[in-house]
Nucleic acid binder design. Structure first.
Lengths: 225, 225
DNA sequence: GATTTTTTGTTAAAAATGTTTGACAAGGAT
DNA sequence: ATCCTTGTCAAACATTTTTAACAAAAAATC
């Protein structure tokens, strides 16, 4: 059976949001929810929710809706955060430390096994119980600790070289905060977080909103004349 | 003339990437580039580049291509980073400080005017020449300093309350790092950076890649039998 | 300076992808 | 027995990407 038709990127991109909302519902002590209620909260259509979930199986019950905790756990399983992922952080600056300090990651199976930096002043420091190391023993560390994911919070200039070392050491995925596109083999996943790109999109939207406001203001004034 | 037809989100999302590549080209000292050469570097089609740019006007020259510096500046203008944006950071933890320390933002017209936190231990500290303040005088500060953008790097629990204060004080845009969707009026821009969502997408892709690898391995073994 | 080559700006159409809407049988809840 | 709500499908609609084409402008060549 080659029935495993590809699930669209758009659906996958929505999964974390479902997960987030279900987590919120659990915190509110809500045990069950219908696609309709959830759609109202999330401002998407109920049909989209049902169809999205239907890509992975049937998790609800007719006449009942979805059990919040069950669906929450099922989505965790789909996303793969029910398993443990070992992760290292390359670049122990503010951003690297911010990631290390984000407690929830460990709750979701992302275990920070190590941090690395080239700055001698940082090496030896301990962040959240994790010691910052120099990058000389990077490869060995990855292999010994079965590290699958590397968060890359280093300057662009060093990124390609480090990425290559990571790939050669057998890393499966790079969470890339460096401001560049990495070139890696097909079987290595790269998830980009380009903060400056994000800020530029924000800038565009602010600018065009301001332009529009000005344009409307002008129109209003012209009408008055 | 209401010819200002809406430019698609997809195009806008690509602009920062064009800008990034053009910056790289400038650093390499390359003065001109054709849509064809650029497409090879960026791994998109030349036609898409030409069509994307064409949304905003004609920036190239037939038989010549594009002048790198000129196009770079024009895209900056389109994105709106040729003007100055005043920005504050709410939440002076690691993430807030990481943003404050990211030097390039100021090069691109984003001036960090202030940082705010509720943690008394942080108040008074100076990061990159910017003093961390308590949030009592938030509104006054926004008005006095003509702040347009607020980066929100605070826990989910405080985010809605702060967002409302920001909106009431006249903020035009929120760069939202809190793990929740904010509700704001239509004329306020929210750009979300949900790091945990991003990590989950990564997780999904790693997991499904590993599943696929296993499946293939199985098939291979079955064939051998 | 004439000719050929390059490359843009621009349009249109086709293909691919994603979203919305409506519908309804059937399984449980009430 | 009735109501609710899922799982499921199909069709309509919307958006985005790709492909193709070509006149016109400038560069490069002869």
């Amino acid at each position: 059976m080659t029935d495993e038709r590809q699930i669209s990127k758009a659906v996958i991109a929505r999964l974390p949001r479902y997960y987030r909302y279900l987590g919120d519902l659990m915190e509110e002590g809500i045990e069950r929810i219908s696609s309709n209620e959830l759609s109202a909260r999330m401002k998407v259509t109920a049909s989209q929710i049902r169809q999205d979930l239907n890509n992975f199986g049937g998790f609800g019950q007719q006449g009942y809706g979805y059990n919040v905790r069950y669906l929450y756990n099922e989505i965790a399983r789909i996303i793969g955060i029910d398993r443990q992922h070992n992760i290292i952080i390359i670049g122990a600056g503010n951003l690297g430390q911010a990631i290390a300090n984000y407690a929830n990651f460990e709750k979701r199976g992302f275990m920070i096994k190590g941090m690395f930096d080239i700055n001698p002043r940082l090496i030896g420091l301990v962040v959240r119980g994790v010691e910052i190391r120099g990058i000389d023993d990077l490869e060995q560390f990855i292999i010994e600790n079965e590290v699958q994911i590397a968060a890359l919070t280093i300057p662009k200039s060093k990124a390609p070289e480090i990425a290559e070392r990571l790939v050669n050491a057998g890393i499966k995925a790079i969470w890339n905060f460096a401001h560049m596109d990495l070139t890696v083999p097909d079987d290595v996943v790269v998830e980009n977080v380009h903060l400056s790109d994000s800020l530029m999109r924000l800038s565009y939207r602010v600018s065009s909103m301001m332009d529009e406001r000005e344009r409307k203001e002008k129109e209003r004034l012209e009408k008055e004349v």
